[in-house]
Every structure is written in C-alpha cells, then in structure tokens.
Simulated scan of single mutants.
Amino acid sequence: MSNLIKKSAIAIVLGGAAAMAGLTFAQADTVSSTAATLVAQATTPSTGGAAARSQWLNLGQIYERVVAAGYTDVREIEREKDGYEVKAKDAQGRSVKLYMEPVEGKIVKEKVRDDD
C-alpha cells in the first residue's frame, strides 16, 4: 500500500511541475518587450553609481541610438553594471562591440571584434 502512495505522490509532484513549466512557457510567449525590459531592470542589482537605474535608457532607446549612429545588424544589447554593451556592424561591415553610457546613450568605446 505504501508503494501506491509513493507513486501517487510522485505523479502529483511531476504533474504540478509540468503544469508550472507550461504556465511559464505560456507567459513567456505573451510578455511584451516593454514588460521584458522592466523585468530586466528589476532583476539587475543596483551599482550605487552616479546614475540610478531608474534614469537609464531602456533597451529600445539604446537600440534607436545605435542605429541613429550608423550601426547596422544589431545582434545583442546587454545591460552591464556600468552601462550597456552592444554587438553590431559598423559602416565598413565589421563586427564591433560598443560600450554605451546608460543615461544619455553615448558610445564611449568601440572595439572591433574578430569572432564573427
């Protein structure tokens, strides 16, 4: 009898885990880019720097500034502790990594990447 109880308990736990995974997957499909940006901001630890995270530009604003500066094929934008890192192509078609100031969105450093 105890074997039946163990099997039932395992089935309930696995069923619950599968249901939670399904809910998580369903929610991930419906999250807007704005909500995803808010989650990224909320889960990133504060650095205590001059600019509070609440003053930082969001990912969409960083993307707009990169494109306005003439970069194309923006592949990745990462929030770092002191700003943003962006992987894109420069005007010559080279892969670059840009380091951006988070409040005004200025490019502070550009590094040509060898690994394309």
Rank of each mutant, 00 (worst) to 15 (best):
K89R: 14
T44K: 05
E76P: 00
K106T: 12
K7G: 04
V103K: 12
I12G: 07
V96P: 12
D115K: 12
L59Y: 12
L38V: 03
P45D: 12
L57V: 05
K87Q: 15
L38W: 06
T34Q: 14
I62A: 01
S2C: 01
R79E: 14
K111A: 10
G49D: 05
S54A: 04
N3Y: 03
A28W: 09
G83W: 13
A18R: 00
L23A: 10
G15C: 09
I5Y: 12
I10H: 04
V103S: 05
V86A: 02
A18V: 11
V39M: 15
T24K: 08
T30H: 06
M1T: 10
K87Y: 15
E76H: 08
V103R: 12
A21N: 04
P102C: 07
N3R: 09
E110Y: 00
V112L: 15
A68L: 07
D90R: 05
E76C: 01
I12L: 15
A11V: 09
M20I: 06
A19N: 08
E64C: 00
A42V: 06
V74F: 01
K109N: 11
S46W: 02
S33A: 10
A26V: 07
I62C: 03
E104V: 01
T72S: 11
Y71P: 03
A50I: 12
A21G: 11
L57P: 02
M100H: 06
V31A: 08
A88P: 09
G16A: 05
G60Y: 01
I107F: 04
S46I: 10
E64I: 00
V96W: 15
Y99L: 08
G22V: 04
A36V: 04
M100E: 03
R75K: 10
Q61E: 13
Q55S: 13
S2K: 14
A18T: 13
K6N: 09
V74Y: 01
R65S: 05
K7Q: 15
K109P: 02
Y84D: 00
E101C: 00
T72F: 11
G22R: 02
T72D: 15
